[in-house]
Design a protein around this nucleic acid. Structure first.
Lengths: 193, 193, 193, 193
DNA sequence: GATGAATGAGCATTCATTCAT
DNA sequence: AATGAATGAATGCTCATTCAT
């Protein structure tokens, strides 16, 4: 039900979301749909919450004991996996982001999500600074924000052909690493094992 | 007329665009509007072309003789100026980008625009490499793409408060410069092997 | 159950009567309501019968041995009391009267009620004529009908402020008495003791 | 258009008024109806104003120079004529009166109408007192109100068979005259010349 | 060129009623 | 007896588009 709506949004966008069609896909009367979601808005909220759940469960697992760099790379890996296996998430998220411009309810939810992401990134960066893997003069908040913006930029293009996206992520990942890493003495830190 | 539609899209998004309201704002009958733009799609095309024109005329002027770095910085300056003086352009552009996912006509136009932008960036980067300001091993296409993605990521947030956006651009600008610049002789920490 | 419907009709009229809301107020499922009243019409019938019961039990008590004038005045007193203590009855009755125009079932019930009222009034009037308190040339049926019409007129305004209604009843009561009473020799018949 | 709605209300009451059906009767698309009356409420307002117009134009004409009694009788004659020739007016008016209980907009219009009627009656009564046709101790306001209530009571029964209504009006008319007229010296005031 | 009027196809939502449990 | 879930048939209203003038 929520998933039918979800799929429909992926296909036709919020603009093309029709309660009738959602009901039809689930194989129920449109009145029945309204029995569960009294209003279209409520249905959308359902979709939003569904998406939130999916976004919260990260796609990649890292040891808590892992180093900051590894955890940072995991972030990129996460996006990479999502882009490949569940690009729909990014699609809906983007539609949501645009809709949030005019819908305070969605804006609220999204900003809550962003806050969590921001904090998560900051904690990684801070850990990196502490363990001296990352530059000591790193502006944690600003760097987290710029990372988010860059990753978002990628997400916004989730309909691109996959190959191009891979290259994009790699390049931006490297760029960020180069930005973040402490200048190592003698050997290059940015080589991947 | 096109401008009224443009303004309406900024205010309410594509979803909230009504031919009647556009006509009303111009002070004409909605039938008259349909005389000029036989279909809503045509009107949107008009808006798209209008936007294209505005996007093409860059907001910052640089000497043709300027160095590559200067020209690169001008790109960022351009976004910064737009974000301040004409954020509407970015708003509509973003809406358009999302709509392009399902509308091949718009997708075509946008990809044409992107092509132009890509080529422009590549030419800057190539110049930088030639004049040895930029790294000689730079992947021109990939770097141009990543720049575009990053700048787009910023544009997508054009409704953010202006202060935060400034910081964002600065940070990303610096990041890209660090990525692109040739290692100065002797003490560059960001050296590639 | 019937009372919940009754109350709802008072609040929102027949137009605003929803089976779901009735069930809700009784604290039961709307399906259960339909178990007892298979149709909305049936529920309304229930309300009608409930109202009939309440209307039949007069609000004022008079000795059977009382004089015709006294019994006539009791009729007015009855309305006056109802208007004060149970205006809802008149409200529902009025709604019902209007509905009866198109609903023969209700029309039947109401006309039965009217018949009873008519006969009751006629019996009072006849008694008055017999005991010579009332004019001998009184047209019993016509007078009863006109009384009913006048009292109904009052009932139809049961949402008026109470003070005005009191005055109205008094005035009309006096008027009817003046009409009905036999011309007394020498003194004015319309003075109340 | 308004007339179709008017007719529909007469037939099925406000409860049975459907914009679609109104449009259908006029032979137009229901969207066209909404072009003229953007909302159902607006359509009803149209009906109300139409009715007001019809109610204002009295059905009987009396010389301005006529005596108070004659003018009073004209009032009754007016109702009698309406009841015969345009009972619909009374039907709709009654529906309106009931609806006014919950709809302030209609309540306002109706109370405005009542005010006019009240003033009109008072002016007749006052004239009668001045010319000494009517009792000098007449409470003008109260009498006007009671007359209105009584006439309304008749209107509320406008679906009755015509014969009964005639009798009703006559009886109540006589009653009111008896109430209002100054006691003539020597002969009964209720005899009609 | 311009417009008032008209319209078809839809849309979210409502509501009395039904049905399996 | 009771109920959660389901449903068909509306219902008021919207909107891009068309058409006669």
């Amino acid at each position: 039900m929520v998933q039918a709506a979800y799929a429909l949004i992926v296909e036709k966008g919020f603009e093309g979301l029709r309660t009738r069609e959602v009901a039809e896909r689930v194989g129920m009367n449109s009145a029945t749909l309204h029995y569960y979601f009294p209003t279209k808005e409520a249905l959308i909220q359902g979709v939003v919450h569904h998406l939130m759940q999916e976004l919260k469960t990260s796609r990649t697992t890292v040891d808590e004991s892992a180093g900051a760099l590894e955890r940072l790379r995991a972030e990129f890996a996460d996006i990479r996996v999502r882009l490949k296996e569940a690009p729909d998430q990014l699609v809906v998220l983007t539609e949501l982001a645009v809709r949030a411009w005019r819908d305070p309810a969605i804006a609220g939810i999204l900003s809550y999500l962003d806050q969590g992401w921001h904090n998560h990134l900051v904690s990684i960066l801070r850990a990196g600074v502490v363990e001296k893997t990352f530059r000591s003069d790193l502006d944690l908040d600003a760097t987290a924000d710029s990372m988010m913006s860059q990753l978002r930029g990628i997400g916004y293009q989730s309909k691109l052909e996959h190959g191009k996206l891979e290259t994009l992520i790699d390049q931006i990942g490297e760029q960020i690493e180069r930005w973040v890493l402490a200048p190592a003495a003698g050997k290059s830190p940015r080589k991947r094992p």
